[in-house]
Simulated scan of single mutants.
Amino acid sequence: MASKYLSSLSKDDYLELTKKLWNIQNHKCFICEEEIDLDLNTTNIDHIVPLANKGKDAEVNFAVTHESCNKSKQDANLKIAKILQKLSKIQKSIQSKTSKSASLKDILKSYNGSKYEFKYKIEGMELKYSFSDIGDNKTYQTPIYTDNLSKEQTCFIEVPVEYLYHDEIINPRGINNSIGKLIKEFDKQNPQLHLSLARIEDDRLKIFDGQHKAGAQILLGTKKLVVRVFLEPNIDRLTETNTMLEYSTANCF
């Protein structure tokens, strides 16, 4: 949808707005976050939130980009385009080093995750834990549930990304293109209907299922994730279940 505001500007006013946004953005493209040289690079001004998504046709909702970035963006929403570009950089960096796709491990590493051990203890049917490494010295506690069929014991906790790791044993798979759809859905504030699943190994909370959903939320700026934690699980059973679930999902209509 065309901008009436931008259309009303004279050439000089448009250039002045470009320079103003350029300074606000520390001379960097809003999408790729690489430097813009106003003397050498062709630029565009675009809405951060599209008018079709009720974005304002005003300076507060404008950003300056390289023209090439704006033309090649994968989404009309500049915020989403910026996130997808960040993900693309992570993917390219990992592929150039390992020839493999990036995984949740690489997203966590890029967003200050996977730094600390999970300090906890089990008392009766309660899990007690703390996040003191990030200055949160409160002792939290949550009930432990026993599944009636598998007899696996689990609990539900909200975990800062600094304490989350990717489980490369149960789920060694990389990120695929489905994460882009999840990013768009979560950005619309649609709810997370399936929690990521994690287990504790070597005092680390490792996500073994739901890495795309976890990654999408982290890329959108989420600092804490609610996860279902399996306590002393049967690893072979979790691996088999996770593999069969992945196969069934890939082959469903």
Rank of each mutant, 00 (worst) to 15 (best):
C252Y: 14
T249D: 12
E168C: 10
E152C: 00
I170W: 03
L193Q: 06
V161Q: 07
F156G: 03
L225Q: 04
V161D: 00
N242G: 09
P172A: 04
D202E: 15
K188G: 02
I179W: 03
I218Q: 00
Y165N: 07
F156Q: 11
Y165P: 04
L231P: 07
L205N: 11
P172T: 08
F230N: 09
G210N: 01
S178V: 06
G210H: 01
V159S: 08
N171Q: 12
G221F: 09
I235E: 01
I207T: 00
Q192P: 01
I207P: 00
N251F: 04
N176C: 05
N177I: 11
N251K: 09
C252D: 14
I218P: 03
A250D: 14
E246W: 03
L245N: 14
K223P: 01
L205M: 05
T241H: 10
I235S: 07
L220S: 06
D209G: 11
T222D: 10
T154M: 11
V227C: 09
M244F: 11
P160M: 04
Q217E: 14
T249K: 15
E240G: 04
E240I: 05
P233A: 05
I169N: 10
P160R: 04
K213E: 03
S196I: 05
G215W: 10
T249L: 14
P172R: 00
L238A: 10
K184F: 09
G215F: 02
I207V: 15
E201L: 13
K223L: 10
A250Q: 13
K223I: 01
A214W: 06
I207A: 06
R228K: 15
F156R: 15
L245I: 14
I218S: 11
V229E: 08
H166K: 03
N171M: 05
N190S: 07
H194I: 13
R199Q: 13
T239F: 10
E246H: 13
D167R: 10
H166M: 00
Y247C: 08
N251L: 02
L182S: 10
P160T: 08
F208Y: 15
T154R: 13
V229I: 11
H212F: 03
I218E: 07
E246P: 00
P160Q: 02
N190Y: 13
L193I: 10
Y163M: 02
K206E: 10
T249N: 15
L205W: 01
K213W: 04
K206T: 09
L205R: 03
H194C: 07
A198P: 08
E201S: 14
T241R: 12
N234M: 02
K206Q: 12
Y163R: 01
L197R: 15
I169E: 08
K184G: 05
V226Q: 14
L164I: 12
L197S: 13
G221A: 04
D187R: 05
Q153Y: 03
G221K: 02
R204A: 06
G215D: 00
A214P: 03
L231N: 07
L231G: 07
E168T: 15
F208T: 08
R204C: 11
C252F: 12
